[in-house]
Write a protein that binds this DNA or RNA. Structure first.
Length: 580
RNA sequence: GGUUCCGUAGCUCAGCUGGAUAGAGCACCAGAUUUCUAAUCUGGCGGUCCCAGGUUCGAAUCCUGGCGGAAUCACCA
């Protein structure tokens, strides 16, 4: 719609003032509520070229548009703002068009590999991972819907000193405990030993910089692991498998999937090789203790270690390997890393080092840097027990959804299984929306009480609006009322026009969300649309409307609304319940 | 200390590449259900957009400098 308006305004500017190719500079916005009109054109940017008073120019342009016919049938000018009223037939056309379109955008011929989740296998997933997973999942969906070829990958950090800590602690104090005999999820069990290591280690430390025997043992274990020591590797494999099983459950409940899973244990060697090659070529440098470094001072950064003196790899080394492998596997034109902004530095360095090593495609790497999750009481610290566990959190939001629903006794006619299903959708809908609605780049405050809210600006509010729309359509079917696929004429009132306008915005919102990579845009749009529908629903009879023309218009609006809101929610990974 | 990001209502957040009188939700107060789902709707209360300069027809938005907060500057990942 806005495109069409820009088109005719460009024509007006050209005919009236001989201003050519002005299209990109034309500013169109929605007319504010307090004025008559649908869209508003701002003449100020063109005033110098027009060389008339704003009101006069506005009037001339408005006059031109009305006389031209077609889109605009009336206008008013306030200061430099020309408020345009769109002819009613146009709204009907637009509604029909949306009713017939699917919502996926045309192919862009762009291949994107997106990495997210990237867990460590030494402890269970927590709230921070949830934000990461939800962002990665939603982004993937948005990128796909906006016409991109998307490959979702996970990179499991299954090696390193932290894993060895859990292993060592289990060996020393585990007494053969397993997930089965302890009745504990594998990731939780391994996490417990990570904590145990820390506790025991603390007992041995008098001042913080001291390297304890225990820590030395862990380092020794890492060295053995990198050399392929049989016993260490077997233990490593056993414990990691416990963890994977646990993660799988968590992912499944969250609704997260991957096309491919990389394991750092399988990629770090490639990184090591490439680093050593870089050293041979003189791109990297070696210090007296044999450690290998990249000199980044020409980029106004420090030096960065890539291999320790004992030859073992660090995080950067394995990430170099993973990136190279990933590029070989898919040759994408974009590699997105969904990783918290605490690692901004890591990714600037990664890109530079790859470039130094001769990989021009390092420019394709895009760090999707999202903000931290904060809690009302401060940070999450595992040592202080303030970590919000992912499984616990999901359990809690679902329980809350159940509690609320049972109070209102709405779903009593459903079977227990059906009910459980609905509570699951709603609980997770609440959690996902709560996290995705905020701008991903900003730090966010996670208030546990607010996150399970079902009223106001929440996921369930939006889900409810959908359930209502479906309820109307179901009743229509029961009464043998046909839901029109299109309508020929009608006179939408103000509220109806309002919804149609919003529905018409959906594709451009999706386009924008894909461009700037922000699920929050979709979330905010969905909320606005749902609110609009609830208002419409409140004071418009739909099925009970006797005038058939009006009823059909409203039915079509209801049906189209349902489709759009369902699609939008699906991009957030939220399921729309048929009833709730 | 250097670098980066952030600062909008009591709280949590919107505010697109500068545009009209800065918007939502929560909380608080007052209302709405003989009507398709009240997990809803309507109204009220609530702001020196951190501060000070600058750019211009016009600044929450752009620039500079302060103040406040966060992250990072690891042979942890």
């Amino acid at each position: 719609m806005e495109k069409e308006i820009k088109q005719v305004i460009a024509e007006a500017l050209s005919v009236l003032y001989e201003i050519k190719s002005s299209k990109d500079r034309i500013q169109i916005q929605k007319t504010r509520k307090e004025f008559a009109g649908d869209y508003t054109f701002n003449v100020f940017p063109f005033l110098k070229e027009i060389r008339k008073a704003p009101e006069q120019a506005g009037n001339e342009i408005g006059q031109f548009l009305v006389e031209k016919g077609g889109l605009v049938h009336a206008f008013n000018v306030i200061k430099g703002f020309v408020n345009l009223e769109i002819k009613q037939d146009n709204w009907i056309d637009i509604l029909n068009t949306i009713a017939q379109s699917d919502f996926n955008l045309p192919e862009k011929n762009e291949k994107v590999v997106i990495e997210y989740s990237s867990p460590n296998t030494n402890k269970p997933l927590h709230l921070g991972h949830i934000r990461n997973n939800l962002l990665g999942d939603s982004l993937s969906r948005i990128l796909k819907a906006s016409g991109r070829d998307v490959i979702q990958v996970n990179l499991v950090n299954d090696r390193g000193i932290h894993i060895c800590k859990s292993m060592l602690a289990w060996e020393k104090w585990g007494n053969g405990e397993t997930p089965e005999n302890a009745g504990l999820k594998g990731d939780k069990l391994v996490g417990n030993y990570y904590v145990k290591f820390d506790q025991e280690n603390k007992k041995l430390v008098s001042d913080n910089n001291e390297e304890t025997e225990l820590l030395k043992e862990a380092r020794e274990m890492l060295r053995k692991w990198e050399k392929g020591d049989e016993k260490v590797c077997a233990l490593w494999e056993k414990m990691n498998n416990w963890v994977y099983k646990g993660f799988e459950e968590t992912y499944k409940r969250l609704g997260i999937t991957f096309d491919k899973i990389y394991y750092e244990s399988e990629t770090y060697k490639l990184g090591k090789d490439k680093v050593l090659k870089g050293l041979e070529k003189g791109i990297l440098l070696q210090k007296d203790d044999q450690s290998v470094w990249a000199d980044l001072t020409d980029h106004k950064l420090d030096e960065k270690i890539l291999l320790r003196a004992d030859g073992t790899s660090v995080y950067m080394t394995q990430d170099i390997g993973t990136a190279i492998l990933r590029h070989q596997d898919f040759s994408p034109n974009k590699m997105i890393y969904v990783v918290g902004n605490e690692q901004d530095y890591h990714f600037t360095v990664l890109k530079i080092v790859l470039k130094k090593l001769g990989y021009e495609w390092s420019e394709f790497i895009e760090h999707f840097s999202y903000g931290m999750v904060e809690l009302p009481h401060g940070k999450m610290k595992s040592r202080e027990g303030t970590v919000v566990d992912a499984d616990d959190l999901m359990e809690e939001v679902v329980a809350q959804a159940r509690k609320m629903a049972e109070e209102s006794d709405k779903l009593s006619y459903l079977s227990e299984e059906e009910k459980a299903n609905v509570f699951e959708l709603i609980g997770l809908g609440a959690l996902k929306y709560y996290i995705l609605k905020v701008d991903p780049r900003k730090n966010m405050m996670f208030n546990p009480e607010e996150s399970v809210q079902l009223q106001g600006n929440t996921g369930p509010f939006i889900q409810y609006s959908y359930a209502r729309s479906k309820s109307v359509l179901r009743k229509a079917a029961e009464q043998n009322i046909i839901i029109p696929e299109r309508i020929d004429e009608g006179n939408p009132d103000e509220k109806e026009v309002q919804i149609i306008k919003l529905l018409a915005d959906y594709k451009s919102v999706l386009e924008e969300a894909g461009k700037v990579m922000s699920p929050a845009l979709i979330a905010n749009y969905a909320f606005t649309l749902a609110k609009e529908f609830n208002q419409f629903y409140y004071d418009h009879a739909i099925l009970k409307e006797e005038n058939e023309q009006i009823r059909n218009l409203r039915l079509l609006i209801t049906a189209v609304f349902g489709e759009v809101i369902k699609h939008a929610l699906s991009l957030l990974g939220i399921t729309s319940p048929e009833r709730m």
